[in-house]
Design a protein around this nucleic acid. Structure first.
Lengths: 340, 340
DNA sequence: CGGCAAAAAGAAAACGTTTACATTAAACTC
DNA sequence: GAGTTTAATGTAAACGTTTTCTTTTTGCCG
């Protein structure tokens, strides 16, 4: 045994005076072994500091007790928290997690998934920009690897997903604004192209506004990468009939929006009320605190993993899992001023 | 070939009418192959949708073109950004990254590293609670796997690290407060036990304060998991001689602290100036914007990976890499009032 | 204590690569 | 065009496991 190499089953077997099969059985608790033998083996393992080589095991098993995760970015706490949930569940189950991010780039999505598949992950949890048109998903359907859409909704019964009801969330956001007396509503969204979730939320938002008999809400699209006080915001708010209540398609965007409004000389919630979505933690630390439609991100991660594991084991059919969202009040949303 | 199995080298070889060695050579660009042969092989690869099995390759190569990353948490943007930098560099080099988090729990650190080692990662990038006393590092030193300390500093020449000069950062924070006229300074830190970085920053902070001939600064320790308006804050600030300028050992803590002060009826920066550390993005979105000592987190991630790769390749000796921090002004830090 | 079932342990193949070495085909040389 | 170098391809072993199939050992019964 080369001292510079990690010990293998053979080394352990040699030292314990048994065969590698026996060592393997001790390690995995399979088969029946005499207590005396097991003791010898365990002692050898301890002495050598042996740790099974996953490469050998995985190759033999044809599977890698690891899953791949593809998210747009870790910079948004909603995804970082989701990952924490996935990892927690995976750790408990003895699985490892490979994380990649696409930076909202469809090209990266494809290459990232390719990379994960090369690693022979046993399954995937992925968030794509657009679940209905995604090329990646189509190619994945031809693979043998089960996957769970995450934060994306799908109507396709052949595909699993874990997500909130985004349209309903948008609807609830509108209702909340309306119930606070707001009549002129608007929605700020990231580039629609980059998120089907944004579109669903907008759709639900619009439905609620119309149902209340209010005028069609403004839609203000903001480039995630642009400056804070962008032109779109200026155009929408420097008018006498500006919205008094706006829904931002996510909390990070809401923070940007509030900062932008501030630059335009508009105060939140005095001049404009803002409700965000996601329920990120910093929203509660700032002033004004951010009202938000909360997603149970960590729990979503746990559920996504649990379901994926069931799919991998063949214990489950594809399923569309809807998790409940909730409303968290905040100072950024107040009652509309009557005189307006 | 079973249609339910992924194709292997053998399948490709059979279809192209060559040997598996030739296919392997085409794949890796090693050896010389006739253009006609290469074309046949590539066509077969295309037709079968072949993708090399990393498990087989890794086992043969004895190494897994993947590295492990251990961080306290992804919930802090400083670490999420760092990971983005690591992943970016890794992707460019064709490596994969396994990410785990310890949640500031020393026990988790040990098991997480164990897990990564079982995956036979070729190297590690890790942030521990305390680099000088860490049990994990001692056991890692007995392994063959190179590692790079990340955000932790070390004086041990046998260990690599990538970090800012935390003591200097604390020193600079104090100087900045002092140069704005502040005379009564304090520092808010997470539990010291959970971070050697906190301690270094505090040490540097204290040095600068003393060098300026000012009284010993208060140290206010806050449990990361406690409520916003905690007793420690109350005790330190509900006194006539309260600090007028405080340094928070990280930005997230600064946000909590500002919120806590607000609950105590103290306004930032009017009553108290605050400077944080890390330079997280949300700091620039909120009001007041957060003054901060900025760490180039993404760049640090890139450098950590680059150095680790060099260590893995045997091209580099352990090295202590110090990256420069910088000061980013913000509204949370203003000039001290003269009459005080 | 011989015989036999059950328990325990071993031998060997297989997973999908890469690569050292052997072999064949092509290309010169005179 | 036979001999010789060089280019191109093939053969087979090895990486460290798990597991099937055999073989050996143990325990038990009459």
């Amino acid at each position: 045994m080369n001292v510079l190499q990690r010990p293998t089953l053979h080394d352990v077997a040699a030292r314990a005076g048994v065969s590698i099969a026996t060592v393997s059985r001790v390690l995995n608790g399979t088969g029946i072994i005499r207590p005396a033998t097991e003791a010898k083996v365990r002692e050898a393992i301890r002495q050598l500091g042996f740790r099974p080589n996953r490469m050998g095991r995985d190759l033999r098993m044809g599977q890698s007790r690891s899953i791949g995760v593809l998210l747009p970015t870790l910079a948004n706490p909603i995804f970082a928290d989701s990952v924490a949930g996935i990892q927690e569940a995976a750790r408990n189950a003895g699985w490892t997690v490979l994380i990649t991010s696409s930076d909202y780039d469809t090209g990266h999505e494809q290459t990232a998934v390719e990379g994960l598949l090369s690693e022979r992950v046993a399954g995937l949890i992925i968030t794509v920009t657009n679940a209905d048109t995604s090329q990646v998903l189509n190619s994945l359907d031809n693979e043998l690897v089960p996957y769970v859409l995450f934060h994306n909704e799908t109507g396709n019964p052949a595909r699993s997903c874990v997500a909130v009801d985004n349209a309903r969330a948008g609807y609830d956001a509108a209702q909340t604004l309306i119930s606070h007396g707001h009549q002129r509503l608007g929605m700020v969204a990231g580039q629609f192209a980059a998120s089907d979730r944004s579109r669903s939320r907008h759709a639900g938002f619009t439905v609620a506004v119309r149902a209340a008999g209010l005028p069609q809400p403004d839609l203000i699209e903001i480039d995630f990468n642009s400056d804070i006080a962008c032109g779109a915001l200026r155009a929408a708010f420097l008018t006498p009939l500006r919205p008094t209540g706006i829904f931002c398609s996510n909390d990070l965007l809401a923070l940007r929006t509030i900062a932008g409004l501030r630059e335009l000389g508009l105060a939140v919630p005095y001049d404009v009320s803002v409700i965000g979505m996601d329920g990120i933690n910093v929203g509660q630390l700032i002033a004004p605190s951010l009202a938000s439609i909360v997603q149970p991100s960590r729990e979503m991660g746990r559920q996504a993993f649990a379901h994926l594991l069931a799919r991998i084991a063949g214990d489950a059919e594809p399923e569309q899992i809807r998790v409940p969202h909730s409303y968290r009040p905040g100072q950024s949303l107040s009652a509309a001023k009557l005189q307006e």
